[in-house]
Amino acid sequence: MAILKTEKIIKKFGGLVAVKNMDFEVNEKEIVGIIGANGAGKTTFFNCISGNLEPTSGRIIFDGHNITKYKPYQIAKLGLARTFQVVKPFANKTVLYNVTVGAFVKTQHKKDAIEKAEETINFLNIYEKKNVLAKNLTLPERKRLELARALATRPKLLLLDEVMAGLRPDEIKDMLKIIEKINNHGVTIVIIEHIMQVIMSVSKRIYAMNFGEKIACGTPEEVAKNKNVIKAYLGDEYVIS
């Protein structure tokens, strides 16, 4: 069953069409990847789903709700969480404080929220950092904090925007394990990533975007062999016909 579905999403910035007729579907408990070159419109598409941008036209259905015109906080409350490509920690607060803000979505009580936050921090193996100020964390730690905060809202669906950009190969491996662990707990995941091997290994299905349009969709193998994808990534001369 589709937990998230978008119909003909268009996002224009003045004359520029950043997202063109995106039809997109994610089934419950799936991991779906979105690939594409810089400027392909992936993050803009994400921003439309999470409510940070309002699509020019089209419809977004999440978990039975038409969320097209919802504000970001309303969408987050429904159980759709996201991370940002450029991490946005509450810099002057501790890791625990950051994550507790996320945990407050499901409770009114500080004690419950802190308990849930500690659980989440533990789950992501950053427990020993819980009293460190967010501004004093390293980049991989900040990425993990970003993830922990989103996860603390106990989402049904998690949008991950380049959580692995800037990480070393061993850190990427750790992150992949974490993503699979989150998915095993029943959280549906949509992930944007640049690094092809990474997204190929973790996603069950992949959408490829170029110049705001969907150019291919299918299993990682199908997408990797798709003519349009090869053309977009490598150029016309690499297409074997």
Binding site: S50, P72, F90, V105, T153
Partner: peptide, 12 residues
Amino acid sequence: EDPEAAASLGVN
């Protein structure tokens, strides 16, 4: 601290 990040966590 960061309105955009807060909103993404369900904060009005």
